[in-house]
Amino acid sequence: MLANADRVMPDELKFEGDKRFFTAALDRADLIVHGRHSYEDQPNSPRRKRIVLTRTIGSIAPDPSNPMATLWNPAGASFEAACDQAGVHSGTVAIIGGPDVFEIFMDRYDTFWLSQAPRVGLPEGEPCFPGVPGHSPQEILAAHGLSAGESQMLDIADGVSVTAWRRMSWRKV
């Protein structure tokens, strides 16, 4: 789960090590993509170029409340068109969710960083992906062609870790 039943990330799911990892990754990204309920709320947030998924518009539009943001309805335009509108033509894209956003990109990820806090339970919470809890996040990532790679411990005291799930690229020799 990535949020409680109210779609809010509770304090018990916030860990300093995870926050540092997340912040560093966003600082390296050329573009942030998220749903209208997600926002990283960090000091560098206003400087980050972003695409915000929404159903309130037909296709693509500038965000009137944020000059660094482009609003995008995937039903009305391609991701490439949204990137073009945002002025981003190459680089690293960070997809920060939520579950509907993650699902859109599931077959496009090069790497998905799955953080886990095994000592926190949110039984009625918002799942990280559609299909959870019927399937584990790991099963869903594997079903989309991603394989678990290296893991890093982010918070030893609370057992919080992050694992890189990477797309296998096959080359003929």
Rank of each mutant, 00 (worst) to 15 (best):
Leu26Lys: 08
Leu26Gln: 04
Ala29Arg: 01
Ala29Tyr: 04
Ala29Met: 03
Asp30Ala: 06
Asp30Lys: 04
Val33Trp: 09
Val33Met: 11
His34Val: 08
His34Arg: 14
His34Phe: 09
Arg36Glu: 13
Arg36Lys: 15
His37Phe: 13
His37Arg: 15
Ser38Leu: 09
Ser38Ile: 15
Tyr39Leu: 14
Glu40Thr: 14
Asp41Thr: 12
Gln42Pro: 06
Pro43Val: 06
Ser45Leu: 11
Ser45Gln: 12
Ser45Ile: 13
Ser45His: 13
Arg47Val: 12
Arg47Glu: 13
Arg47Asn: 12
Arg48Phe: 10
Lys49Ser: 04
Lys49Val: 10
Arg50Glu: 07
Arg50Pro: 12
Ile51Ala: 06
Leu53Ala: 09
Thr54Gln: 03
Arg55Met: 05
Gly58Asn: 14
Ser59Met: 02
Ser59Arg: 03
Ser59Tyr: 03
Ile60Trp: 00
Pro64Ala: 12
Ser65Ile: 10
Asn66Asp: 15
Pro67Gly: 08
Pro67Phe: 02
Met68Lys: 12
Met68His: 06
Met68Asp: 04
Leu71Ile: 08
Trp72Pro: 02
Trp72Gly: 03
Asn73Arg: 03
Pro74Arg: 04
Pro74Leu: 08
Ala75His: 08
Gly76Ile: 11
Ala77Lys: 01
Ser78Ile: 03
Ser78Phe: 01
Phe79Thr: 00
Phe79Glu: 00
Phe79Asn: 00
Glu80Phe: 06
Ala81Trp: 00
Cys83Leu: 06
Cys83Gly: 01
Asp84Gln: 04
Gln85Glu: 07
Gln85Ile: 04
Ala86Cys: 01
Gly87Leu: 02
Gly87Glu: 07
Gly87His: 00
Gly87Asn: 03
Val88Leu: 05
His89Cys: 03
Ser90Cys: 05
Gly91Arg: 06
Thr92Asn: 11
Val93Gln: 05
Ala94His: 12
Ile95Leu: 04
Ile96Lys: 11
Gly97Asn: 13
Pro99His: 11
Asp100Glu: 14
Asp100Thr: 15
Val101Ser: 10
Val101Gly: 12
Glu103Arg: 13
Ile104Trp: 14
Ile104Leu: 15
Phe105Arg: 07
Phe105Gly: 09
Phe105Thr: 09
Asp107Leu: 11
Arg108Gln: 11
Arg108Tyr: 06
Tyr109Ile: 09
Tyr109Lys: 06
Asp110Pro: 09
Asp110Asn: 10
Thr111Cys: 08
Trp113Asp: 08
Ser115Cys: 03
Ser115Asp: 02
Arg119Pro: 00
Val120Phe: 00
Gly121Trp: 01
Gly121Thr: 14
Gly121Ala: 14
Leu122Asp: 01
Pro123Val: 09
Pro123Glu: 01
Pro123Gly: 10
Pro123Gln: 03
Pro123Ile: 03
Glu124Ile: 05
Glu126Ser: 09
Glu126His: 09
Cys128Lys: 00
Cys128Met: 10
Pro130Asp: 07
